[in-house]
Amino acid sequence: MRFRLLQKSDGVGKKPQRTDGILAVLETDGPAPSRKRRLIKDLAARRFLFGLTLVPGLLVFVMLFGLFWKARAILAVKPLGRLLLGTTWKPSQGEFGMLAFLAGTLAVTVVAMVIAVPISLLTAVTLSEYAPRRMRHAARPMVDLLAGLPSVVYGVWGVLVIVPFVERLASMLGVSSSGYSILAGGIVLAIMVFPTIIHVSLEVFSSVSKDLRDAALSLGANRWEVAKKVVLRKSRQGIIAAVVLGLSRAFGETMAVLMVVGNIPRVPKSLFDPGYPLPALLANNYGEMMSVPLYDSALMLAALILMLVVLTFNVAARMILIRAERTAG
């Protein structure tokens, strides 16, 4: 069943005749030059935007390269092993052992994670499994707000509340401590890490399907069993990712920790000892670094190490999340 194909001469493609006397305002395709201009604009935008889009990808590499470029000077004269494991930090004498700083960072991060992981996971489970919808909706902005507080504010709060608290705790235990300590840094950091872990795990939990939950509930499991056996098990990978993201956040946090941790470059022996994390080293010495030879290079090396560690954590966590998302969807 085919019929004659219309030709241009049949009047196809021309304006339909209007009976109500209204003008055909536009040419069929608009004035040709304006159409061309629009298309050229679109094409130009496509090219330009594509170029712009490469910026974030390149930025990671440019940052790494820039820091490495500066760090080369010190790497050329000192073996990396001695820089990382050396215990003496005396820039004026050319000693750049970073062990104390690495140990300090590690110590506060571990303390923070020990406190933050159970609490924030519990909070996330509660919010996603137990809390009524309304409460979940109310909690979200609170978590965001907590994440949005400047680190200096956390620092001031730490000085006002946590440091005296730790001091008292120490004296109760018969340890002498100024309160400016690994423990104080860890507690403040833990609170700063809450939002990250809660946020990511909430997202992971919400991707566990409702059907699965309902199925478990219909088998007679109670809510806690569902949370433990279904939700937590299903999102194990996602939880690891959430924790790793929190970890990397803690690892690089600077100001808040710097303000409560004491900043004495010794490897800490107890929770009540002061420490000196790597980011604090950078923040405290930016002023002098240009006046001592190799000092700037050493600090850039410290920044490079920070970035590499955090980058590794982040890439790993994101990979896990992407994989988990794929298997879930």
């Binding site: 974030p56 930025l59 940052m63 690089g252 923040a283 970035m307 954590f313 982040n314």
Partner: peptide
């Protein structure tokens, strides 16, 4: 992915860079 990674870079590193 790059944005996710950049998001995790500590601000002190941005400072240094």
């Amino acid at each position: 992915f790059s944005f996710d990674v950049l998001w995790g870079v500590p601000s002190i590193v941005y400072g240094a860079f």
